[in-house]
Nucleic acid binder design. Structure first.
Lengths: 344, 344
DNA sequence: TGAACGCGTGAAACCGGTTACAAAGAAAGG
DNA sequence: CCTTTCTTTGTAACCGGTTTCACGCGTTCA
């Protein structure tokens, strides 16, 4: 490995000059700079990041916290891959790498007496590795842990979880606007009796989608009887049973907006079992645009999230703080209505 | 941040002793060891990983190479999430972290004149960050780049790509055995005219699945006319069009084994469009057991891969080499036949 | 009793960068 | 022409660990 000292010697300059060439090129005279650059290229010089991190206390690494929540074993992130793509490419563009932090079972963590899935353990890793900040990915339901991160004072950005702290913010879709779009779409199609199946109340996106639903209904001058709002849990069975109960109402809705595509698929199944035609007897709109949405019968009208965009926004937010900027306000990325055959 | 020197001073010992307490505890007398450990705990000491990496030239980080191949924009890894879970947890168990390396557009890479998606750039990052080794995830079709990694001499383990090199090996499913299982299942269900839709010939798992298919057909004494073997590309449309052409044959097959679930879903669509009932008119078996497989109509019979297990095996293999062990032979993890309604 | 050995320990060099500070030289101002 | 200021450069300390080497001491063996 070529070092800065070898280059210095070969060029007949000091190590400080060589270092400056790479960090503050303008403070070095043109001649010396060019010599150093040429020699560095010839020797295939690569700065040692460990040494650099040691000296500057900055590592160019952003931590990724993504624990699979043991309380919800079957949980899968609905768009992890796209999220990572966006996150990684935006970080790359600024020369940062993404470090997936070790968690449960880590010998290193055990050695320092850290308990599993412990925010403290992560914060430690952050210190140990000079991480600039953290990106937190929703792993089902560990909001309390996330709050602990947010309070830790180091830059962190959560995805789809509502956190706040001195240097903590979050990124999610414009759930309010998306839900409102769904309602307007249904209203334009002539529906008047529109119900909704929500996600868990404690979940921020779920709550926002309900707010958007209510707002758009009010705007359209439509009433929302309490029995038209049923709480689900984002999983399919809850959508199916909720729809069953909606259908059984004395005055059943003609359309249902589901806060998640999985639940919407459940709604389609319930409708089919009840002998209802979709969309003629019951229109269904979902949220997320998961892969399945286009494949079910009938294909599902839904709100597509800008999945990679959310990753990019998270990267931007964390980098802003890492670079000393103000904590950015929460970002709400626009959603897009994808009209398929389950509504009209 | 507490440092080793502060602890040394407080304990009245040298920094060397403190360092030894954490690295070779047995070489330090019991009394001093306990004092140091107690003080370290009280001061909440955390070793500085940058300093440690600088001194030892080892970082406790494993690089993850996962480029979205620009030549195949829509490409999605069929089981990235589970793979990462397995990978991460196995690495964590040994105190290692996973570093997702920056790629295209990286300012840091541009600064050293590296071209995008360049194996050389990754190898540089490996040197710069003192990475122990690399895990390569198939990103569609960049086998040539993977070969370059494999030749670089640093420990690397590829997932689902057939590489070889001084310290390079790979992990994949038992594709031969899985395909054979699929065939035997169809034969037992009474099928005699069985076709297959393969993946790209250059792809190792695709080739193995074809081999397994052929072997099991021969074993069952069944002929495989050339027109019963159609090459696809793992994407859904290719499965759809391949199935269309199979259906149009003078003597169409009664069952089709698809080398990937996405293509199998395409097969289902083609069958539906042709008015064929699945499985009565055409049985379909896929491979991968992606999430979608259980959700399509009819649910897909497929070969489930041990997705997390593949991640674990990859982690084990790379750690073996990192710790100076022999290059492990390629690992072929068993698959499991999941019988659903698309075959019988 | 003296040589050989092993153990525990500390001093100091080292890993490869960054940066505060001082100094030398060049340019600008009076 | 002398002083002041700016630019460029080098020296050396520093970041926080690890590790080599030598030394002192207590055992063991001949």
């Amino acid at each position: 490995m070529t070092t800065i000292r070898e280059i210095a010697q070969l060029c007949g300059v000091s190590v400080a000059t060589v270092s400056r060439v790479f960090n503050q090129p303008l403070t070095v005279s043109k001649e010396k700079r060019e010599v150093v650059e040429r020699v560095a290229r010839e020797l295939d010089y690569r700065p040692n990041e460990s040494a650099r991190a040691l000296a500057t206390k900055r590592s160019g690494l952003i931590g990724l916290v993504w624990d699979t929540d043991h309380r919800r074993p079957g949980w899968r992130h609905p768009y992890l891959q796209e999220l990572l793509i966006g996150l990684k490419s935006a970080l790359s563009a600024h020369g940062y790498h993404l470090l997936m932090l070790a968690t449960s079972g880590s010998a290193a963590l055990r050695a320092v007496g850290a308990s599993l899935a412990d925010p403290v353990a992560y914060v430690n890793m952050t210190r140990r590795h000079h991480l600039g900040g953290l990106v937190l990915i929703d792993s089902g339901s560990d909001a309390p842990a996330f709050a602990a991160f947010a309070q830790s004072g180091l830059p962190c950005v959560a995805v789809d979880v509502d956190v706040d702290g001195p240097r903590a913010t979050y990124v999610t879709s414009d759930n309010v606007g998306g839900a409102a779009m769904a309602v307007r779409h249904l209203v334009e199609a002539g529906h008047r009796r529109i119900a909704t199946i929500t996600g868990p109340r404690a979940n921020r996106p779920a709550a926002d989608r309900l707010d958007g639903f209510r707002a758009a209904m009010a705007e359209a001058g439509l009433a929302v009887p309490p029995e038209y709002v049923v709480e689900g849990d984002f999983y399919r069975p809850s959508g199916q049973s909720a729809t069953r109960s909606l259908i059984a109402l004395p005055e059943p809705p003609t359309a249902v907006f589901c806060a998640g595509d999985e639940m919407a698929v459940g709604a389609l199944l319930a409708a089919r079992h009840a002998g209802l035609r979709v969309p003629d007897d019951l229109a269904v709109v979902g949220f997320d645009d998961i892969e399945l949405a286009a494949l079910v019968e009938p294909p599902l009208t839904t709100l597509a999230q800008d999945k990679a965009g959310i990753g990019v926004a998270a990267a931007r937010a964390v980098l802003t703080m890492v670079h000393g900027g103000e904590k950015p306000p929460p970002a709400f990325l626009p959603t897009r209505l994808v009209v398929r055959s389950s509504s009209r």
